[in-house]
Amino acid sequence: MTWATGVGSMPGDDAVGFRQAQETVLGELPDLPHLVELPGRGIEAGMVGRALALVTDLGIDLQPAGWRLTGEPGASGVDHRRARSLLAHDLDVLEELTQGYDGAFKVQVAGPWTLAATVEKPRGDKVLSDVGARRDLAQALAEGVRQHVAELRRRVAGAGRLVVQVDEPGLAGVLAGRVPTASGFGKHRTVHPPEASEALGWVLDAVAGEGAEPWVHSCAPETPLDLVRGAGARGLVVDLDVVDAAGHDVLASILEGVDGGEVVAVGVVPSTDPGSPPTATQVAERVLRWLDVLGLDPDVAGDRLLVVPTCGLSGATPAWSRTALDLAVSAARALT
Score class of each variant (00 low, 15 high):
residue 60 I to T: 11
residue 255 L to H: 03
residue 114 T to I: 00
residue 179 V to E: 07
residue 204 L to S: 03
residue 229 R to Q: 05
residue 189 R to Q: 04
residue 323 T to H: 14
residue 313 L to D: 08
residue 10 M to Q: 14
residue 201 G to Y: 01
residue 257 G to I: 03
residue 72 E to D: 06
residue 137 L to F: 10
residue 240 L to Y: 00
residue 153 R to K: 10
residue 183 S to C: 02
residue 54 L to A: 12
residue 132 G to E: 14
residue 134 R to G: 05
residue 251 L to S: 07
residue 201 G to M: 09
residue 331 A to L: 12
residue 301 A to V: 15
residue 35 L to Y: 12
residue 291 L to M: 08
residue 251 L to Q: 10
residue 258 V to D: 12
residue 158 G to Y: 07
residue 332 A to D: 14
residue 259 D to F: 01
residue 41 R to G: 06
residue 52 L to C: 08
residue 230 G to N: 12
residue 178 R to G: 13
residue 298 P to K: 06
residue 191 V to Q: 00
residue 55 V to I: 15
residue 159 A to T: 13
residue 190 T to G: 01
residue 26 L to C: 07
residue 278 P to D: 07
residue 278 P to H: 02
residue 315 G to K: 13
residue 171 L to D: 12
residue 165 Q to N: 11
residue 140 A to H: 05
residue 280 A to R: 02
residue 216 V to I: 14
residue 4 A to C: 09
residue 201 G to K: 11
residue 295 G to P: 12
residue 250 V to K: 11
residue 243 V to F: 02
residue 262 E to S: 12
residue 50 R to I: 00
residue 68 R to N: 03
residue 217 H to D: 10
residue 264 V to F: 02
residue 82 R to W: 06
residue 164 V to N: 04
residue 144 G to M: 03
residue 217 H to C: 14
residue 38 L to K: 13
residue 258 V to G: 13
residue 130 D to K: 00
residue 200 L to Q: 10
residue 135 R to T: 15
residue 100 G to R: 07
residue 122 P to W: 00
residue 280 A to E: 03
residue 194 P to W: 00
residue 284 A to R: 09
residue 263 V to W: 01
residue 201 G to V: 01
residue 36 V to I: 04
residue 8 G to A: 15
residue 303 D to V: 04
residue 93 V to C: 11
residue 172 A to E: 03
residue 189 R to Y: 00
residue 253 S to M: 03
residue 184 G to T: 10
residue 156 V to M: 06
residue 37 E to T: 09
residue 106 K to W: 12
residue 130 D to C: 04
residue 336 T to L: 11
residue 118 T to Y: 01
residue 316 A to P: 15
residue 58 L to A: 04
residue 118 T to N: 02
residue 171 L to N: 11
residue 95 E to K: 03
residue 284 A to V: 00
residue 252 A to H: 09
residue 314 S to F: 07
residue 89 H to P: 09
residue 222 E to C: 04
residue 318 P to C: 06
residue 27 G to H: 08
residue 282 Q to R: 11
residue 308 V to R: 15
residue 82 R to A: 14
residue 129 S to G: 07
residue 28 E to V: 11
residue 185 F to I: 02
residue 30 P to E: 05
residue 219 C to E: 09
residue 176 A to P: 02
residue 2 T to G: 06
residue 137 L to H: 07
residue 334 A to R: 15
residue 233 A to D: 11
residue 106 K to M: 13
residue 192 H to L: 10
residue 279 T to I: 05
residue 73 P to N: 01
residue 39 P to H: 12
residue 153 R to Q: 06
residue 25 V to P: 13
residue 320 W to A: 03
residue 268 V to I: 13
residue 136 D to M: 07
residue 41 R to A: 04
residue 246 A to Y: 07
residue 253 S to G: 12
residue 74 G to M: 05
residue 207 V to P: 14
residue 249 D to G: 13
residue 42 G to K: 01
residue 297 D to S: 15
residue 292 D to W: 08
residue 181 T to A: 05
residue 210 E to V: 05
residue 61 D to Q: 05
residue 196 A to W: 01
residue 42 G to Y: 09
residue 31 D to Y: 11
residue 142 A to D: 05
residue 117 A to R: 02
residue 208 A to P: 13
residue 266 V to Q: 09
residue 3 W to G: 13
residue 336 T to A: 14
residue 97 L to N: 10
residue 254 I to A: 06
residue 108 Q to Y: 00
